[in-house]
Structures are given as structure tokens and as C-alpha cells.
Computed example of a mutant assay.
Amino acid sequence: MTRTTTTTTNVPEFADVIMDLLGRALIGIVVAAFHLARWAVLFPMVSVPAGLSVAAGWFYGWAFGIVVAVLTVAGMVLWRVLSPQTFERWLTGRIRSRFLAWFRYRRVWVKMITACGLATRDGDRVFIPRLISVHIGESLDIVRARMLAGHCPDSWTNRADHFAHGFGAQQAKVGLIGPGLVEITFRRCDSLAEPIIVDFGSRTDSTVSPLRKAA
């Protein structure tokens, strides 16, 4: 008796592949549009002039739109020259803080928390402590996170060195600031390490040694 074995290979059809690619592209476009709208709301001092330039070019011609864009850039430069403090506070400082918050912490949060052993598993599901907020400072960054069920303060405080190494900081300090709420303070640099510059040419006679005065 001869037994015949038939092997069936399911090859995805070309139309299915195209539909899958289109679906992924559509999801990417929606996500990109969401982030663009979010950044436009966060930074109206940039998005509003840019929108006015596009609208001027659309309704009155590209030349008029270019003129509006040039005037906008000139106004931004004038703002930077006349009031660098407010320019830093409302524009470059906010952009820098949000970028560093994403680059230093949000981008690698899941990976680092898992490597530190603070993720928990329930069957096929993996639970990650939620990142509540990130504050970027000159020398200190403050990160707040929500502990998972089953965690205790020691679960976090004992991993301070792991946090410092994993997130690229000089030092990390962990504290409990509320029920299930943890605050991690990262020292990125030494604020007292700036050199003190002494202008020797502006010293007064009081800095001269008494022996030289007597001479």
C-alpha cells in the first residue's frame, strides 16, 4: 500500500501584500499627523506663522507666501536678538526639554525598566511601570513613575546604580513621593564644576600683598 503525502504551502497573494503595505502606510500617516498636530499646539509661535505662510501662498500665490515666510523668519531673529531670555524660555528651551525627555528617557524606558527587572509578567502579558512625567534641568533631571502591584520602595531604591548606568547619568537617587509614586533624580553633570574666572587686570590695591605696599 502506497501512502501519498501532500504538502500545501500558503503563499500570500499579491493583492494581500499590497493591502497590508497600504494599511501600514495609512497607520504611519495617521500617527505622523497626530504628532504634527500635537507639536503645532505645543509650539504655536512656530506653527501659526508657518500656517499663515502656507495659507498666503495658497490663496495669493507662492510669491506672497515666500514674503510672509521671510518676514516671519526676520521676526524670529529680531525676537532672539532683542529678548534672548524669553526666546529661550518659550521656544528653544521648550524644544530642547521635550527632545531630551524623549531621547534620554521615553525612548528607552521600556528597555531599561525591563533590564532592571521591574517589569512583571502575567501569562503572555508584560506590564511596564508607567512613566508619569520628565523634567529636564540644567544639571538634574527628575523622572516620576508609577510602581506596579507587588513592587515595594526597595524594589526601586536598590536599583539606583542600575538607573544611573542605564540612562547615562552620573548619579541617580530614588525616593517615594506618594502612594505608589516614585521619583528618580538623575544628576547629569556637576553644577559646581564650572571654572571660576578671575580678572586679574581689574584687581584693586586691596588684593596686593602688604609687603609690596610697604616696599
Rank of each mutant, 00 (worst) to 15 (best):
G166P: 07
T4Q: 04
F200Y: 14
S47Q: 05
W102Y: 12
R146E: 14
I184A: 00
R187C: 00
T92I: 02
V126S: 10
R144M: 07
V134P: 00
V81F: 03
T2H: 09
R121T: 13
R146D: 11
D190H: 02
S191Y: 06
A63V: 12
M19Q: 15
D154R: 14
F200I: 05
I29Q: 09
K173E: 11
A69I: 06
Y60E: 03
D190P: 00
R89P: 09
K213G: 07
T92C: 01
S139Y: 06
G23V: 03
V67P: 04
F59M: 07
V182K: 02
H165D: 13
S53G: 05
R24I: 06
A25D: 13
R159K: 11
M1Y: 11
F103N: 06
D205I: 14
R121E: 14
S83P: 11
L22K: 10
I136A: 05
C116G: 15
P84L: 02
F43Q: 11
S133M: 03
A119R: 06
S83Y: 14
V108W: 08
A119P: 00
Q171E: 04
T4H: 04
D16S: 10
R188P: 02
Q171R: 09
P129M: 08
E138F: 02
A56F: 06
I142Q: 13
T9C: 08
R94F: 01
A15S: 13
W79V: 03
P44G: 09
A115W: 03
A193Y: 03
A74Y: 07
W109K: 04
V198H: 12
R130A: 13
R159W: 06
A119H: 08
V48D: 00
V174N: 01
V134D: 01
W109V: 04
Q170A: 10
L100Q: 01
Q85C: 10
D20F: 09
V143D: 04
T5I: 12
P179A: 05
F14A: 12
V68K: 04
V73K: 08
V11S: 10
R130L: 12
V81K: 05
M112P: 00
R104C: 07
G117V: 07
V108D: 09
R144D: 06
R188Q: 07
T92S: 09
W58S: 13
V46Y: 09
A169F: 02
W58C: 08
A145L: 07
A215T: 12
A37N: 12
R96F: 08
A164P: 04
R203E: 15
F87I: 02
A214S: 14
D190G: 03
K111N: 15
F87K: 10
M147S: 08
D161E: 13
D205N: 13
A149H: 10
R144Y: 05
E194K: 08
I66L: 13
I66C: 11
W102H: 10
W62Y: 12
S83I: 14
T185M: 02
T7I: 05
G51K: 05
L71I: 05
V198M: 06
V126R: 15
R159C: 05
T9I: 12
V77K: 05
R24A: 09
T92Y: 05
E183N: 04
P49C: 04
L26P: 00
W79H: 00
I113A: 12
F14T: 13
